[in-house]
Amino acid sequence: MLLSVSDLSVSRGGRVLLEGVAFDVQAGQAILLSGKNGIGKTSLLRTLAGLQQANSGQIDVPQNAVVYSAHLDGIKQALSVVENLQFWGAVFGRSNLDAALETFELGDLRDELAGALSAGQKRRLGLARLLMSGRSIWLLDEPTVSLDLASVSRLSRVVSGHLAAGGAAIIATHATLDLNGQEITIDLGKFATTKSDLAASEKAFL
């Protein structure tokens, strides 16, 4: 069991968005988080990634097992595709550059400046970074944004490959990703707080 979340409550801007969130992620499994905009998908992912402190609850995840990919791809426009990937490879201590390039068909763009790439190509470069990380749990925030159909199916194939290799993924998305049966969809609606609950820090003033 790679990651388990129990009774987690996530807040944003002083208000509790989600409460009692609980799920487990086994190796080879993917969780698709669905729910209307602003329900707290990004806040949940940021809490799992450790960027944000949970309001309350428990997250059990091994050290250095998670890699996070946000709306913004963290790509340096003034560096080339290869240089961008080499940098992240060095940060994560990996060097499977060619595999990443080939998987996301960025081989012929290798020396192109990232700034010159299309939105879809930049997105693929951002996702290629995940392969470079070698981390087992992928946290993807709306990965299919600005991807055409062919790219979405390529993304599905890559994620399925990652799952088959024993990895796991938690993906916040509206698109349907075909991960040949490995995916479980969780609708965050059932964790959304109906009554207007305030984060602990604000409640002190009531």
Binding site: A49, L51, A70, L72, G74, K76, Q77, V91, F92, G93
Partner: peptide
């Protein structure tokens, strides 16, 4: 910060 690299660096092993 603007292109999201900072968030990714904070969650990296560095």
């Amino acid at each position: 910060h603007e292109d999201g690299t900072l968030d990714l660096l904070v969650t990296s092993p560095l």
